[in-house]
Structure formats: C-alpha cells, structure tokens
Design a protein around this nucleic acid. Structure first.
Lengths: 146, 146
DNA sequence: TCAATTGCGTTATGCTATAACGTGTGTCAT
DNA sequence: ATGACACACGTTATAGCATAACGCAATTGA
C-alpha cells in the first residue's frame, strides 16, 4: 500500500508522503527547511527528518521542487508548465535562477537564456562538463527595498 | 597582543588566526569545510569551530576567501590581484562564478561580465536590489571527464 | 512464486553553524 | 593617565541541516 498513486491530473504519480511535502511547499510563500516541513507534517504522521528528505529527493528528481543552496531550503517550482526544469523527460528550459529577498523571504524564479549560453560557452571552452548549475541572487525585492 | 599585525606586503593586516586559516585554504587544492580547517589547525592551538568561523567571516569580508554555497565549504580567492572580489575598498569586478569538479574537487573561479550584466538587467527590471550573487556550476572538469 | 525494486518507519549519528559568556589588548578622547 | 570603546580571542553549550544503517511492506515482472 505504499506505491505511488496516479492522480487524474499531471506528471509523475506521487506517493502520499511526496504529495504531503509538495503541498506544504506549494502553499508556502517562502522557502522552507526540511525541518520546518517536518514540523508542519507532524499531524499527518511524520516523525523523522528522513521522511521529508526522501520525499524531497524524489520531488527534486521530478523537477517539482528546487533546492536553494544559499539557504539550505526548498521551494516548489514556480512554473509547473509541463516539463519544467530540465530533467523530466522532455527538454526543460535550462538553468533556473532565483532572486531571494532577505527581508520578506519571497523567491522569484526566472530563466535567462543568454546567461545559460554564456556559462555554457565558458564550460565548452574549458572542457568542463556541467551537471547542475546554481544561480542565486540575494538582496531586497522591490516591495521591501521601497 | 591580539591585534592585527601589519605585514610588509599586501592588503588588510591579518591576525594570527586569520593568517593560519587563510594559509590552510591557500595551500589546499580543493575547497575545505570549516571543520576540516579546524582539524588542520589543532596543532596550532585551535580547539573550537568558532575560532575558524570567526576568521572565515573576516576573510570573506576582506574578499580573500569565497564560500561555496553548494558545498558548505570555503576556498581562497583565486586572483589576489589587488582588490579582488568586490568589496575591498576599490571596485572589485563584480560577481564571481565557480566551476566545481565533483570528481577531483578542483574549483575554477571566473568572471563573466555579460552574465553580470544580464542578471543586473533582470534585477533592474524587477526593481530587485542585489546584495550578493552566487553562481556555481557543478560537473566534471576537463581532466576528469576525459 | 520468487527476486528485485521501491517506499516507508525508526534509531542513531554526523556535519555545519551560532549563541552567550567572559578575557585580554590595543585606541583614543578626555 | 584613565576610562570608554572596539575588537580579537577562548570556551562551553546548543541549534540546525543531513544521512547511515537497519528492517518491514507492497508492487512489479520474469
């Protein structure tokens, strides 16, 4: 009784734990640490960090969640349109960048093809084979800077 | 007897602890965690993580060391030429990017003005005020990919 | 049916980072 | 000089992030 359950709607079928973790992240308006997610899910039977980390690993693999390296925290992917962020099966659309407001915590996810291109060129010139690229801008969002 | 000691040579005068930490990083051929640095310096009287973290904080502030967010580790700045990386007093030269080999651990530090420019444009358009930008490419270096 | 795979739960542990306290030492305005 | 201040330092304790290693249950498919 622990296998993924296919939903009427979208992409890869999520297990119960994966759904719970994703829903928490998707409803959040700021990144959450694994332990914060754990606390949110105690009422649903979560007791240990591994339950969260295992779900997160899968969600990351599915491209439904991003990890913010500079925060050790996680966010739901902001543009669920089909194969969002690179691996799914489809094409994805390259590296995603994040602008993180240090005041309100809000995160904007965006993509810049030219940036991708420049970093790709550098890699090619150096014979470096990129696996995963992290771009995170920390600062103040428009609302908070005002 | 705990004040910075001015050296004949370069930039900001470092205290004993700061020098020790910097030397360890500078001699390393891969990023080091704070705790690894601590272990390297036990023989020099280091006993606690804070001794390392405090030194690192200053070295980061001086722009002599970079933190790799995706690794929770630190490297000495690769181009010590004068005011390296942004804050010193001088101008610096914008955001630095890192290519991190997941096989041999080697880190290449580089700068791409166009990438800076594009990210700056995005920020301007969104009215976002950047404070610090992280760019890290993980993958395989030329030598290891071969 | 049986082996392989995957998800799950639990306990224990390890790694990363900082809080809070007190000490000593230089600087400098008074 | 002296006292206020800033800063580096040392120590203990604790907080926060992540994974190892064990075993069980269910699904899949040869």
């Amino acid at each position: 009784m622990n296998a993924p359950v296919s939903t009427p709607t979208s992409a890869p079928a999520l297990t119960k734990n994966q759904s719970l973790v994703f829903d928490v992240l998707d409803r959040a308006d700021a990144p959450m640490s694994a332990y914060t997610i754990l606390d949110r899910l105690r009422d649903h039977g979560f007791r240990a960090p591994l339950q969260v980390y295992r779900a997160l690993d899968k969600l990351l693999e599915f491209g439904m969640v991003h990890r913010l390296e500079s925060l050790n925290a996680f966010v739901a992917c902001a543009h669920p349109e089909s194969e969002c962020c690179g691996k799914g099966h489809g094409h994805g659309h390259g590296t995603v960048a994040f602008a993180i407001c240090e005041s309100c915590g809000h995160v904007s996810e965006f993509h810049d093809h030219e940036v991708d291109h420049r970093l790709g060129d550098w890699a090619k010139a150096k014979n470096f084979k990129p696996a995963k690229t992290t771009i995170e801008i920390r600062g103040l969002c428009g609302a908070c800077a005002a």
